[in-house]
Design a protein around this nucleic acid. Structure first.
Lengths: 195, 195
DNA sequence: GTCTATAGCAGGATAGAC
DNA sequence: GTCTATCCTGCTATAGAC
């Protein structure tokens, strides 16, 4: 038995991690299966034993990296971090410049519409999970839906727009405005004010 | 003389209009020069007599369609439309579904970072123009920068995110939240309150 | 389960006729 | 200034050896 029976699962996760990193950073078209497999330490031929095609990998990588992100946030919150702190870490130049692992919801926002149904459904599900998180995190009761929707747009839109712009000073200003506005919205939320 | 001397300029504008429509809708990679030229009623060979390469056309098309948009807004404002009305037209399912001409700032937001410097500069300039418009439109004095930045993110981010999502009811809810929040921000702006 | 090799196709860019 | 024809590259996906 040359391989332990967990070998395939581990290889699959290596491919997913590699795909998540490259896809999130460069989008679907600018990344080839060859590059993903090479980055995972394999060759292209092996790919089709793990995923049926490129699009399926894209959807799976989107779910994989988002699950990792949510797990990280859950851990941070358990360690006593505030939701404000997490939002400030998100709406940040470090994030825009990929010095921390980038959020696929923001980095791939206008890539998704061109993809097939499984990708669009995966993205939509990940977004719904984010909304859920915003509604319930750090409060006993639910935050207002309006508050959560607006904050999600400020976060995702702020990072996406900041990344598109070619002028660091405007990006910094933009991220600051989104931080300020998000924290104001959190503070003003009726539920938050009850606590 | 088979062609009037304005022929080249008119052809160039046909190519720009065709490129703007296809690029905005599908992004850079998913549109070929062949498709743009065919849509403009020409063949691929003629392309390189008008633009040096695909990327230059992309940058030019971005500027072209944005100029058209701003001209339209200026006209509407001159006809007595309110800024609120324009924002509501922007943050709208009709826009997301391209029943009206889509805004490249929103539709291409995560496409831009992959492109070369001339494209990123063109996008940044168009965004700065939008910010200018928000700061000065409909008031004698300037609106607060913070207000304008936040509204721009709600508009661009709201449309981009709404387009990515695969669930019409969430998109509608999202657009509504962005409309509500944008109009609140306009109303609360100190300068607006002076009038 | 991973490899090498290759089929098959699409698209950017150029050449040269008219 | 527009056309047709072509070069060249890069990619997805498959075949088949080990």
């Amino acid at each position: 038995m040359p391989y332990p029976h967990t070998h395939k699962a581990k290889t699959q996760e290596r491919i997913l991690a590699s795909a998540a990193q490259l896809f999130t950073s460069r989008g679907y078209d600018q990344v080839s299966i060859d590059q993903i497999m090479e980055h995972a330490g394999l060759t292209r031929g092996a790919f089709y034993h793990h995923f049926p095609d490129k699009s399926s990998l894209y959807a799976a990588a989107l779910q994989y990296t988002s699950r990792e992100r949510f797990n990280y946030y859950a851990q941070e919150l358990k360690n006593g971090a505030s939701i404000d702190h997490l939002i400030e870490g998100y709406l940040n130049q470090e994030h825009v410049q990929q010095k921390t692992t980038p959020c696929a919801l923001a980095f791939l926002i206008s890539d998704i519409n061109q993809r097939d149904i499984q990708v669009r459904e995966a993205y939509t599900q990940v977004y719904k999970n984010l909304l859920q998180g915003l509604q319930h995190t750090g409060t006993a009761e639910k935050r207002e839906r309006l508050t959560c929707l607006a904050i999600s747009v400020l976060m995702i839109g702020g990072v996406a727009l900041g990344r598109a712009l070619n002028d660091d000073s405007i990006t910094e200003e933009l991220l600051g405005a989104c931080r300020t506005m998000s924290l104001q919205l959190l503070t003003r939320d009726p539920i938050a004010n009850q606590s």
